Amino acid sequence: MDGDEDASPVPPPSPMAALGRLVGRRILPLLALLVLLVASWGYWVETWMPVVRHATVTLDQAAMRGQRLTLALVSDIHVGSHGMSAARLDRVVALINAQRPDAIVLAGDFVNGEKPDDPAFHPEMLGGPLSRLRAPLGVYAVMGNHDSATDPVAVTRVLERAGITVLNDEAVRLGPIALLGFDDYTRRHLRMDQILGRARVLGGPIVAVEHAPNLGHTLPPDVPVLLAGHTHCGQIDIPGLSTANSPIDGRKLYDPAFRCGLIATGRHHVFVTAGVGSGSFPLRIGTRTDFWMITLTGR
């Protein structure tokens, strides 16, 4: 029989196929744009001036009666990184000085880098700005993991030339308190009593400083205050997302109980600053760089 046969009707696309095309054409480009905008924002935020946070701690020890001492807690400078040029460090130093602290405590990670001769290591950028720090009772420092992994001798030399006292498991009398600086990377657990003894002979309440807040759960009764950095407050703070472990190899980066801020545990006060820089990862999302002004008073 001559004539064209009727064409078979084309079935309508399934709902799932239609949804897939919609996602591919509209939603995925929008999500990509949103991710780009958030990343750009985080890249910019890292260069903002740090937030100055304030706290007062009352210590019930005889040496503190009628006393008042203000410490600036500053950490994680990471000079030479995206967020910390020498010019920005100069501005950060001016901001710290403007708070008029009695003493300044620098809790490590002055540089970037993961190994000796790392191209990210630029200690020469520290000396000029840090030499302009001013506090009547002095400026004190401990080493951080990046300092120890690259060249702690070179970092210490730059700090000392800038007039900063580096505390390597050592203590100094600071007004009514004993300031005890821990080197995070010695086997100090084998000689903790010896290290603490150096502070106890000085008298007064002991304020300890270390780079990472490793002692948070084990502070002895006569160490009412711990000062630390290292965590960057997680740097990325999104509900439901933890940055306490490395997304690459799963290793623990910090104790999530001491991620950020002032953590009160019984009679102890643990301060963990977000740091004034951000290291080799150039984004901050949901966090800000900061430093703390901590006033210690007696009853």
Rank of each mutant, 00 (worst) to 15 (best):
V223T: 12
L28P: 02
W41G: 10
N145W: 06
L133A: 01
A39D: 04
T156I: 14
T47A: 07
R161D: 15
G197H: 06
L30D: 00
T56F: 04
Q194L: 12
A72M: 00
G66D: 05
L130T: 02
P9S: 13
R161S: 10
A228C: 07
F258V: 05
T165D: 01
V38K: 10
G234E: 04
V155F: 06
F281D: 10
E170A: 13
V74K: 04
G127F: 00
D4C: 09
H269W: 02
R284Q: 06
A274Q: 05
Q61L: 00
I195L: 08
T295Q: 07
T150Y: 13
W41Q: 10
P15R: 10
P119Q: 15
S81T: 11
E5A: 15
M16Q: 14
S148D: 11
P224C: 11
V35A: 14
I104M: 00
R173P: 06
L202E: 08
L22A: 15
G240E: 09
R288I: 03
H189V: 00
L71Q: 04
A55W: 11
D183A: 01
A149H: 13
T70W: 00
N214Q: 14
P119N: 08
A87L: 07
W292A: 02
T273W: 02
N245H: 14
K252S: 14
R198Y: 03
G286L: 01
E160D: 03
T156E: 15
T295R: 13
C260F: 05
A18W: 10
L174S: 09
V166S: 09
L37S: 10
E124M: 03
H78C: 10
A264M: 05
M125C: 07
L179M: 06
P221T: 01
P176E: 02
Q61D: 13
S14W: 05
H122Y: 11
L33V: 13
L253Q: 07
S148K: 10
L37A: 15
I236D: 08
G138W: 11
R100S: 14
K252R: 15
N214H: 13
L227V: 06
I27G: 02
M64W: 03
P213A: 13
I238P: 10
L19D: 07
L133W: 08
P116N: 12
G261C: 11
I96N: 00
R157G: 09
G24Y: 07
P119Y: 13
M64P: 01
R173H: 14
T289L: 03
P176D: 01
G42F: 07
R259T: 09
Y185A: 03
D6R: 09
H232D: 15
L59W: 08
D147Q: 12
T165H: 12
E114H: 15
M16G: 08
G266A: 08
